[in-house]
């Protein structure tokens, strides 16, 4: 089977990258190809990177409260590029009402504080239909 490819991105001006780096490392340790964008990415830069890297999943990390501005824009750009098949996950400080709204807009999963890296790894495997997901879960 092909290796799962993941882009971990930090949209907006938020500098908190502990979670993004921990998740990137955990997904890599689980055998995935992971690209980390670094800080201060615009929605355009993120979608462009996802296109160039041909990823299956985009993991967005936001702790600044700007998620309701930035995430919908990324989803729109992905649709415009015909990349609806790329799964978008969000991690960070996202209040419950906002998480529901993001899921309604097409985000596949929202992960808050207290999530284990194992949960994220299993979730990613499951949504890309990886046969290993059965074992992992």
């Amino acid at each position: 089977m092909t290796t799962i490819r993941v882009l971990i991105a930090k949209p907006g001006l938020d500098g908190h990258d502990r979670g993004a780096k921990v998740i990137a490392r955990a997904l890599r340790d689980a055998g995935m190809e992971v690209v980390y964008t670094g800080l201060r990415q615009t929605p355009e830069m993120i979608v462009e990177a996802a296109l160039q890297e041909d990823v299956d999943v985009i993991g967005l990390s936001i702790l600044s409260g700007a998620h309701m501005t930035l995430v919908p824009r990324i989803l729109t750009l992905l649709r415009e590029q015909g990349m609806e098949d790329v799964a978008v996950l969000v991690g960070g400080i996202v209040p419950k009402e906002d998480a529901s709204a993001l899921l309604d807009l097409g985000v596949r999963g929202v992960f808050g504080p207290g999530t284990t890296t194992d949960e994220v790894v299993s979730f990613v495997r499951e949504i890309v239909g990886d046969p290993e997901a059965q074992e992992a879960s």
């Binding site: 001006l13 600044s64 700007a66 309701m68 501005t69």
Partner: peptide, 22 residues
Amino acid sequence: DLPTQIGYDANHPLAEGEVGKV
């Protein structure tokens, strides 16, 4: 807020969604 901390005025394009947040 983050725009102020990174030296952007509130009307800078990169400030959108971040003004007054943190």
